[in-house]
């Protein structure tokens, strides 16, 4: 069964890399816009003042946009990539389906 339900966008910002690091340079994107990615699939390689890191994708979905080209310095908290993900109802619940309601009740118009 394929899901063609609604999608919502999620923007992924450069996470806190620890070690007091406040920025990182984009070494290499491992995905491209339009590409479908799985959660935890390698997303991008970054270089910090100490080391090179590989950042996994936080989402399953389609890469909508990349916000920094290779070689650019990105500060912690700045957006890296935006994903289009199938809409879930957040942490709980389900997205309601848009269906035409069925009915059993018929009305009789009032006498004018």
């Amino acid at each position: 069964m394929t899901h063609t339900g609604p999608t919502s966008e999620r923007t992924f910002a450069l996470p806190d890399l620890g070690e007091g690091l406040v920025e990182a340079t984009v070494l290499e994107w491992l995905v491209q816009p339009g590409e479908r990615v799985e959660r935890n699939q390698p997303l991008v390689e970054l270089e910090t003042a100490k080391s090179a890191v590989e950042i996994p994708s936080p989402h399953t979905g389609v890469v909508a946009r990349l916000h920094a080209e290779e070689g650019r310095v990105v500060a912690v908290g700045e957006p890296l990539a935006t994903f289009a993900v199938e809409a879930g109802a957040g942490i709980v619940g389900t997205v309601p389906t848009e269906e035409k309601p069925t009915r059993r009740v018929r009305l009789r118009p009032p006498a004018e």
Binding site: E9, R10, T11, A13, G77, P79, T82, A87, G90, I91
Partner: peptide, 13 residues
């Protein structure tokens, strides 16, 4: 996170 319903997505960035 941008809200459990994505309503605040991107605002902090």
């Amino acid at each position: 996170l941008g809200g459990v319903f994505r309503v605040t997505d991107g605002l902090q960035a």
